[in-house]
Amino acid sequence: MISLSNLVKTFNTRDGKVTAVDEINLTIDEGEIFGIIGYSGAGKSTLIRLLNMLETPSSGEVTIAGKTMNKLSSKKLRAARQEIGMIFQHFNLLWSRTVKENISFPLEIKGVPKTERDERVEELIRLVGLEGRGGSYPSQLSGGQKQRVGIARALANNPKVLLCDEATSALDPKTTDSILELLVDINKKLGLTVVLITHEMHVIRKICHRVAVMEQGKIVEQGNVLEVFKHPKQEMTKEFVKQVTEPEETEEAIRHLLEEEDIGHVLQLTFVGREAEKPLITNIIRTFDVTVNILQGKISQTQNGPYGSLFINVDGEASELERVIAYIREQKVQVEVIHP
């Protein structure tokens, strides 16, 4: 569906040439939700703007649905852009227009007859859950409702691709989750290819099938979300994964526990996929002559299955502890002794 080949974007600044996107090669499959994550300045916003030619590549190619975007004439590019919807961090709504009029705007530009426009707008209002708000103005809406208008507007022309530029960064956690659920629903109902950029691993974890990690204009790691969670290779990726699997409060709690003199052996277990559903701790207690105390744990769901970490305190003879660790590894669960 989307193919990026040796893609480069440079900007000339007073301080010299800046390479925002540096030799990126990437393929995104039709119908998948693909996440691009990175810190500010990584180049991810520039990359997503290159997909619909809001930025022109310095070199390389952008191919979407068989069309090389940066080789199209102006007329053909305008037509190709109608197959690409985009939603923004700060909504970019027309404040003097109602919800219906905002959603209708792309159809007006396209020259769609009014009766057909009105039918399409009502259909989209139902799809994004804004029934009864069609006559409201953006100033009368919550942040989540504004983003729903932005999503409906982006879908007006029945695009094949939906680009999301930090679409949930301006929203509170609960509203963020509702918007992410809406994007998953749209992806399933319409078979839409969704590309989103974010600096939050929670967003990637919740809805993406695959992810690419950007740093200094380059993609430093990519893959199936569950595999990236399981085996993060780059330090930056490990930091992002830690946002979800070891939140700050977990780190603090474990640090305090390790300061206790009689804490004994502390193991960190990492579960991926079906292993997260096994009664591992129960089996350890029944099988081995040890006592087990659960210190802290969290299981998260990804689009590809569950992922989680568990910190446990195990008390017993050293030989028995070795048997426990061997057993855990036999169950395809990662284990690390973090104390002593």
Rank of each mutant, 00 (worst) to 15 (best):
G129E: 05
I204H: 05
G191P: 03
E116Q: 15
Y137D: 08
G31W: 09
I312M: 13
P106R: 09
C208Y: 05
E131A: 13
D15W: 00
G316P: 00
L183A: 00
D22V: 03
D118T: 05
S178F: 02
K298F: 13
Q216C: 02
L51I: 12
E119C: 03
S136T: 06
V335N: 09
I294M: 15
I151G: 01
S136I: 07
R97W: 12
L51M: 14
E252P: 07
W95S: 14
K9F: 08
T193H: 01
V225C: 12
T176K: 06
G66P: 04
V324N: 07
M69K: 06
G129M: 08
Y307S: 15
I64C: 02
G135C: 09
T302M: 10
R286M: 10
I284Q: 07
N157P: 08
I186L: 11
I103T: 01
T46P: 03
V244H: 10
R323F: 05
T19C: 10
Q243F: 05
N293K: 07
A154I: 11
K44M: 02
E336Q: 11
L280Q: 00
D165W: 03
V333R: 10
R329D: 14
K218I: 05
F105C: 11
S300K: 09
N187W: 02
I254S: 07
T56W: 04
L155V: 11
D177L: 13
E322R: 14
G16N: 11
E251W: 08
V112I: 15
P138G: 06
A276K: 00
V241G: 13
V337W: 10
Q222P: 00
P106H: 07
T176L: 11
A152N: 03
E330V: 14
Q89H: 03
K206R: 15
A253L: 04
M201F: 15
K67C: 07
F34E: 13
Q145D: 06
G217D: 02
M69V: 04
G143S: 06
V225K: 06
F311C: 10
L196N: 08
I294F: 08
C208Q: 00
G308W: 13
L258I: 14
T168N: 06
N6L: 10
G143H: 07
T198C: 00
V8E: 09
R329T: 14
E317V: 03
G132H: 08
